[in-house]
Write a protein that binds this DNA or RNA. Sequence first.
RNA 1: GGGGAAUUAACUCAGUUGGUAGAGUGCUUCCGUCACAUGGAAGAAGUCAUAGGUUCGAGUCCUAUAUUCCCUACCA
Length: 874
Amino acid sequence: MEKNFRPDELETKIYDNWVRQGYFHATVNKSKQPFTIIMPPPNITARLHIGHAFTCTLQDTIIRYKRMKGYEALLLPGIDHAALATEVKVTEKLRSEGITKESLGREKFLKVMDDWYKEYGGEILSQFRAMGLSCDWDRQAFTMDEPRCRSVHEAFVRLYKKGYIYEGNRITNWCINCKTALSDIEVEYENNDGSIWYIKYFYEGSDSEYITVATTRPETMFGDVAVAVNPDDDRYQDMIGRKLVIPTTDRAIPIIADAYVDKDFGTGMVKITPAHDPNDFEVGARHNMPIISVMNDDGTMNSYAGKYEGMDRLECRKALVEELKQGGYLLKVERHNNNVGHCCRCHTIVEPFVTKQWYVAMKELAKPAIEAVKNGSVKLIPKRFEKLYLSWMENINDWCISRQIWSGHRIPVFKCQDCGANNVDYTDPTTCAKCGSHNLVQDPDSLDTWFSSALWPFSTLGWPDKTEDLKYFYPTNLMVTAYDIIFFWVARMIFSGIEYTGKPPFSEVLMHGLVRDNLGRKMSKSLGNGIDPLEVINKYGTDTLRLSLLTGIAMGQDAKYGQEKIESARNFINKLWNASRFVIENIKTFDYKYEPIKDLELTIADEWILSSLNDTIASVTKSFDKYDLSVVVATLYEFVWNKFCDWYIEIAKTSLHGTQQEKNRVCNVIVYVIDKILKLLHPMIPYVTETIYQELPVHGPSIMVEDYPTYIKSMRYSDSSKIFESMIEVVKSVRNIRANMNVADSMKAPLYVENVAGYDLTSLGDAMMKLCSGKSIQFVSSKIEGSDVISIHSEVMNLYIRSGDMVDKVSEIARLNAELKKIDAELARSNNLLNNPGFVAKAPKNLVDSEKEKVEKFTKLRATVCENLSKLNG
RNA sequence: GGGGAAUUAACUCAGUUGGUAGAGUGCUUCCGUCACAUGGAAGAAGUCAUAGGUUCGAGUCCUAUAUUCCCUACCA
């Protein structure tokens, strides 16, 4: 074996082999319980960034664990066409080549989209492979492939027929750049340092009597239909019903009363512009007001704006304000802070705009989805996201699902050109169901991409067909996703699953945080600050990437990702590699024979490591089942590095210089432990564990289909553990003294070990000497005494070391004094507790007892330290 | 306006039936020893944001406050 693990050469080979063996493929297997994770399909807009790698790693780690635990594990991969987002990208790309969407026409444009899908889809899938995902390639899906088109179609038709989908002429968020409607959650609000203009509206027929209206968007005044006051506002009672003239025009509008107006804000008078403000739209509707749109769909002013026709809305604002100023209409301007909506795709300022769109009525659909989370049939992890989910669902607005774009799923509504009826019957779209006409034209719009995403947990399993897959793997077990798409996606999957299949689509949702860059910024495609996971893979390997992503994270909590985590992960993998290499190389040097643990004559050290391994297995399994992967990693890190490598392997080196029998014993134990370690770690770091596993003297065809280690009752050795841990304490004390005294290697300080508790320590003698840094210490077989002998006591052994002239007395006295201080603090603490009657009366007995034991122990220790001190001083 | 999260060592972060605070990185000192210098050994380092409360006992539970961030909302 080479000195360092070389992932680059091995990963592809190993991965291909896994695929070839069919390990990733899940089958309908009635004798096993399924565990299903449908992967969130990444947008096909670009290559994957580190955030995707994070989600992928979580999922693959969990699915590998479940597979080893004996489940029929399915990780189903897929990609999302991301209708609008991709169309924006492709349109931009075309524009850079001097081509417009319109000049190509719908059909040709969709061909360009197809090419894009192929290019980026392939790239994303190969990135999945590079990350080592054990996903079932036979079931890979795309939100725009034929089966998924059928699902979407069916879903739309069903909802339509139940009356949940309706066409409405309402005010919607409109992006003047993408020229499409957006759903509420596709609008990002940003704080804007704007202005608020106070404008005089003169009464009709008067040029001196006026009222003042405040607005942040003066250009919309051409669409004003009224000015509203609060019905309870005493100031304005007698004005209601009078008419005002819109400045610079000759159009008159009434003053109306509506409770929407806040008496205490601004002047208490609001101009009502139903076409350009959602609230005004409501007010207008209540009062039967007309809707006057003053803009075109590209954000330029239309003829209602008079001489400003054709001017962009923001330019018009500037010019109009100037005109108002000149005309004496402008009373004052104030700075005003408000939130302005931007298109989440192209970042243009969104205009509220009245258009005809398709909506899903959400009220009824939300009800069972709320219930599912409330009654626990869907669990969100961490739990706090349930509150977030519920508050959104309980206040949900109807979902605008139409987009004025070409890509994506075209709305399956065929409008009869003769009678105007909408035909959604999927089987016969050529004949109008109402009048029999063949003059049908399909709605030109496409569906919001989330409409197809909402079906993902079951469309991927064959729905609406009643497939075996659906029966067996659905409802799925776990959905892993970042918390930022809880509304976009999770909520919609839940209500869709219940609506279409009668069951919630999954029982648990694991919500992780966002991976941020080292400045704490969200990594996003649009910002372009994403780290390419492939770069990390190329430099350090997939295992390092995966392990580094799982280090130091908490579910639902954002994490910064940087070089430190990467290096720490790499170092650990290197450590694991070398510990394994150590034994693998060693068993080649003698006549190694495999023996089961139960046939070996175990030493205290053996029993300690086996016991400790056993505890680790129990703890890891518990954390895994809670999806606390970061804790799993930390637990294994600690065991492998600080227990197995630092102590067991070190002490085993002595046995390796012993008899054939000893060598064979210790190698069998090491191999056994390593085998378990590899299996425990495999879900996180699949490649290095597989590689080492194949080098072990006894191994199966692949570690990924082995059983996950389980806790073994008979492998608890509490006595040995106690002795060995005591020994560790003693060794550390000796090392500490050595380091303090600056003992030269040539000094050979005599050290005597006295057995206190009656345990057999013979097997530890030589090994201990080594661990104490043998060169400067020499073990002696008879007790040593004298004024220069320093003693160290533990529960199972006492140590006596002759300090002689080697002691740096000053620093040793300082060290002992420091220790004395600590001991006194401990004693004070324990005595304090024990003197507290409340503690003694109410605390659990074992705690009280352990405090008593501590007092005893520290009292003894104190005496020793004092004795050593007085010797040094004397 | 409403909701949520965060605040723990120099840095990045863990820490649930409440029981004497942990890791990684960095720092100080020592070590080319035959698994690993991507390493080994020893060590320093924290009023767990603040103030109250509950409790025998609080990083942990409760109530305020401060700072930072996120989500959400119709204040023109």
